[in-house]
Measured scan of single mutants.
Amino acid sequence: EVHFESHGEEQAMRVVKMLKKRNLTVEVKVENNKWIITAK
């Protein structure tokens, strides 16, 4: 499981795309203006 924190939507979306290319399940949450990305 991979956790990634991002402060910007643009950066977060880039990471999500990259993770999805690896056929991982990606969950995105926004907490306290931080984008929290979890990949399994």
Rank of each mutant, 00 (worst) to 15 (best):
residue 29 K to F: 10
residue 22 R to L: 15
residue 13 M to Y: 05
residue 36 I to W: 04
residue 12 A to M: 09
residue 30 V to M: 09
residue 37 I to L: 01
residue 8 G to R: 13
residue 13 M to G: 03
residue 23 N to T: 04
residue 12 A to F: 07
residue 38 T to D: 04
residue 10 E to A: 13
residue 40 K to Q: 09
residue 25 T to Q: 12
residue 16 V to C: 15
residue 17 K to Q: 11
residue 33 N to I: 03
residue 5 E to R: 07
residue 15 V to E: 03
residue 20 K to T: 07
residue 34 K to T: 08
residue 34 K to R: 11
residue 5 E to V: 14
residue 17 K to Y: 06
residue 26 V to W: 03
residue 2 V to R: 07
residue 31 E to G: 04
residue 29 K to P: 00
residue 27 E to R: 07
residue 4 F to M: 06
residue 11 Q to W: 12
residue 20 K to G: 10
residue 29 K to E: 03
residue 32 N to Q: 05
residue 23 N to C: 14
residue 33 N to G: 15
residue 29 K to I: 09
residue 12 A to W: 09
residue 13 M to D: 05
residue 9 E to W: 15
residue 38 T to G: 01
residue 9 E to I: 13
residue 4 F to V: 05
residue 19 L to N: 03
residue 22 R to N: 09
residue 37 I to A: 00
residue 29 K to W: 10
residue 22 R to Y: 14
residue 1 E to W: 13
residue 8 G to K: 12
residue 31 E to S: 05
residue 14 R to V: 10
residue 7 H to M: 12
residue 30 V to D: 01
residue 23 N to R: 10
residue 2 V to W: 15
residue 29 K to Y: 11
residue 20 K to F: 13
residue 24 L to R: 03
residue 9 E to C: 15
residue 35 W to C: 07
residue 36 I to Q: 04
residue 4 F to T: 03
residue 18 M to W: 14
residue 35 W to Y: 08
residue 28 V to E: 00
residue 11 Q to G: 07
residue 37 I to G: 00
residue 29 K to A: 05
residue 11 Q to E: 14
residue 29 K to Q: 09
residue 13 M to S: 05
residue 19 L to R: 01
residue 31 E to V: 12
residue 34 K to I: 13
residue 37 I to E: 01
residue 24 L to V: 05
residue 31 E to M: 08
residue 6 S to D: 02
residue 9 E to K: 13
residue 28 V to R: 00
residue 1 E to D: 11
residue 4 F to W: 11
residue 6 S to W: 08
residue 34 K to E: 03
residue 29 K to G: 03
residue 10 E to K: 12
residue 37 I to M: 00
residue 3 H to N: 08
residue 10 E to F: 05
residue 2 V to I: 13
residue 34 K to H: 09
residue 7 H to I: 10
residue 10 E to W: 12
residue 22 R to S: 10
residue 28 V to M: 05
residue 33 N to H: 08
residue 2 V to N: 06
residue 16 V to W: 01
residue 4 F to P: 03
residue 33 N to A: 02
residue 30 V to S: 04
residue 25 T to G: 02
residue 35 W to G: 01
residue 22 R to V: 11
residue 38 T to S: 07
residue 36 I to F: 07
residue 34 K to Q: 06
residue 40 K to A: 09
residue 11 Q to Y: 09
residue 12 A to I: 08
residue 32 N to R: 02
residue 13 M to H: 05
residue 3 H to F: 11
residue 26 V to I: 09
residue 26 V to A: 02
residue 12 A to L: 11
residue 14 R to L: 10
residue 19 L to D: 03
residue 27 E to G: 03
residue 37 I to F: 01
residue 13 M to T: 04
residue 3 H to W: 12
residue 17 K to T: 09
residue 35 W to V: 04
residue 23 N to A: 06
residue 26 V to P: 02
residue 7 H to K: 09
residue 5 E to Y: 10
residue 25 T to F: 12
residue 28 V to D: 00
residue 38 T to I: 12
residue 24 L to N: 02
residue 25 T to D: 08
residue 40 K to H: 13
residue 6 S to R: 12
residue 8 G to T: 15
residue 29 K to L: 08
residue 29 K to S: 08
residue 2 V to K: 06
residue 38 T to Q: 03
residue 21 K to M: 11
residue 6 S to K: 09
residue 17 K to H: 09
residue 7 H to T: 12
residue 36 I to N: 03
residue 39 A to V: 15
residue 10 E to D: 10
residue 19 L to W: 04
residue 29 K to R: 13
residue 8 G to C: 15
residue 24 L to Q: 02
residue 3 H to Q: 08
residue 12 A to E: 01
residue 11 Q to P: 05
residue 6 S to Y: 15
residue 21 K to N: 11
residue 40 K to E: 04
residue 23 N to L: 09
residue 2 V to Y: 14
residue 15 V to P: 00
residue 9 E to L: 13
residue 14 R to Y: 05
residue 16 V to G: 01
residue 7 H to V: 11
residue 20 K to H: 06
residue 21 K to R: 09
residue 15 V to G: 01
residue 40 K to W: 14
residue 28 V to F: 06
residue 5 E to F: 10
residue 2 V to G: 05
residue 5 E to D: 04
residue 24 L to K: 03
residue 15 V to D: 02
residue 26 V to Y: 05
residue 31 E to C: 06
residue 25 T to R: 10
residue 21 K to S: 12
residue 2 V to D: 04
residue 11 Q to A: 13
residue 34 K to P: 00
residue 33 N to S: 05
residue 7 H to D: 13
residue 15 V to I: 15
residue 35 W to P: 01
residue 3 H to V: 14
residue 18 M to A: 12
residue 23 N to H: 13
residue 9 E to G: 08
residue 31 E to F: 07
residue 30 V to G: 01
residue 30 V to E: 05
residue 38 T to R: 04
residue 12 A to K: 02
residue 32 N to D: 11
residue 23 N to I: 04
residue 35 W to M: 02
residue 25 T to M: 11
residue 4 F to R: 05
residue 6 S to A: 15
residue 3 H to L: 12
residue 23 N to M: 10
residue 20 K to M: 11
residue 31 E to K: 05
residue 20 K to I: 12
residue 5 E to G: 05
residue 40 K to Y: 13
residue 21 K to F: 09
residue 3 H to G: 04
residue 26 V to E: 00
residue 34 K to N: 07
residue 12 A to G: 02
residue 34 K to M: 11
residue 7 H to P: 09
residue 11 Q to C: 15
residue 33 N to F: 07
residue 23 N to G: 15
residue 36 I to K: 01
residue 26 V to L: 04
residue 38 T to N: 04
residue 34 K to V: 12
residue 27 E to V: 12
residue 29 K to V: 10
residue 20 K to N: 07
residue 14 R to C: 15
residue 18 M to I: 13
residue 8 G to F: 14
residue 18 M to V: 08
residue 11 Q to N: 07
residue 22 R to Q: 12
residue 24 L to T: 01
residue 7 H to W: 15
residue 19 L to G: 04
residue 39 A to F: 11
residue 13 M to V: 06
residue 15 V to R: 02
residue 28 V to H: 00
residue 14 R to H: 08
residue 18 M to H: 12
residue 21 K to V: 09
residue 16 V to K: 02
residue 36 I to D: 02
residue 1 E to C: 14
residue 16 V to M: 02
residue 9 E to T: 06
residue 14 R to W: 07
residue 9 E to A: 11
residue 13 M to N: 06
residue 9 E to R: 13
residue 20 K to Y: 04
residue 6 S to G: 10
residue 40 K to N: 07
residue 23 N to K: 10
residue 37 I to D: 00
residue 13 M to I: 07
residue 22 R to M: 14
residue 17 K to R: 13
residue 26 V to F: 07
residue 29 K to D: 02
residue 1 E to V: 13
residue 32 N to S: 03
residue 32 N to F: 05
residue 6 S to L: 15
residue 1 E to M: 12
residue 9 E to Y: 15
residue 19 L to S: 01
residue 31 E to R: 06
residue 27 E to D: 09
residue 7 H to Y: 14
residue 39 A to S: 04
residue 12 A to V: 06
residue 5 E to M: 09
residue 38 T to H: 07
residue 18 M to K: 08
residue 4 F to S: 03
residue 29 K to H: 09
residue 14 R to D: 07
residue 13 M to W: 06
residue 36 I to V: 08
residue 3 H to S: 10
residue 21 K to Q: 10
residue 8 G to Q: 13
residue 29 K to C: 14
residue 8 G to W: 14
residue 4 F to E: 03
residue 27 E to Y: 09
residue 10 E to N: 06
residue 36 I to R: 03
residue 9 E to M: 12
residue 31 E to Q: 08
residue 2 V to M: 12
residue 6 S to E: 12
residue 9 E to V: 10
residue 39 A to M: 08
residue 3 H to K: 11
residue 18 M to R: 10
residue 14 R to I: 13
residue 30 V to C: 14
residue 5 E to S: 07
residue 27 E to W: 07
residue 5 E to N: 05
residue 16 V to N: 02
residue 24 L to Y: 15
residue 24 L to W: 14
residue 15 V to Y: 06
residue 19 L to Q: 03
residue 4 F to D: 04
residue 34 K to L: 10
residue 27 E to H: 11
residue 37 I to Y: 00
residue 4 F to H: 04
residue 17 K to N: 13
residue 1 E to I: 13
residue 8 G to P: 03
residue 12 A to Q: 01
residue 20 K to L: 14
residue 17 K to A: 14
residue 23 N to Y: 15
residue 3 H to P: 03
residue 14 R to A: 12
residue 17 K to E: 15
residue 18 M to G: 08
residue 28 V to A: 01
residue 38 T to Y: 04
residue 34 K to C: 08
residue 11 Q to K: 06
residue 33 N to K: 03
residue 38 T to C: 12
residue 10 E to I: 08
residue 34 K to D: 03
residue 40 K to D: 03
residue 37 I to S: 00
residue 27 E to S: 12
residue 5 E to I: 15
residue 38 T to V: 10
residue 22 R to H: 14
residue 21 K to G: 12
residue 30 V to H: 09
residue 6 S to F: 15
residue 28 V to P: 00
residue 28 V to I: 12
residue 21 K to Y: 09
residue 18 M to C: 15
residue 11 Q to F: 10
residue 35 W to E: 00
residue 30 V to F: 14
residue 15 V to K: 04
residue 18 M to D: 11
residue 3 H to E: 06
residue 14 R to P: 01
residue 36 I to S: 03
residue 33 N to P: 02
residue 24 L to D: 01
residue 39 A to T: 06
residue 26 V to Q: 00
residue 16 V to T: 02
residue 24 L to A: 03
residue 36 I to Y: 09
residue 10 E to Q: 08
residue 10 E to R: 10
residue 32 N to V: 02
residue 8 G to A: 13
residue 15 V to L: 15
residue 12 A to P: 00
residue 27 E to N: 07
residue 28 V to Y: 05
residue 26 V to T: 02
residue 39 A to Y: 08
residue 16 V to D: 04
residue 26 V to K: 00
residue 40 K to L: 09
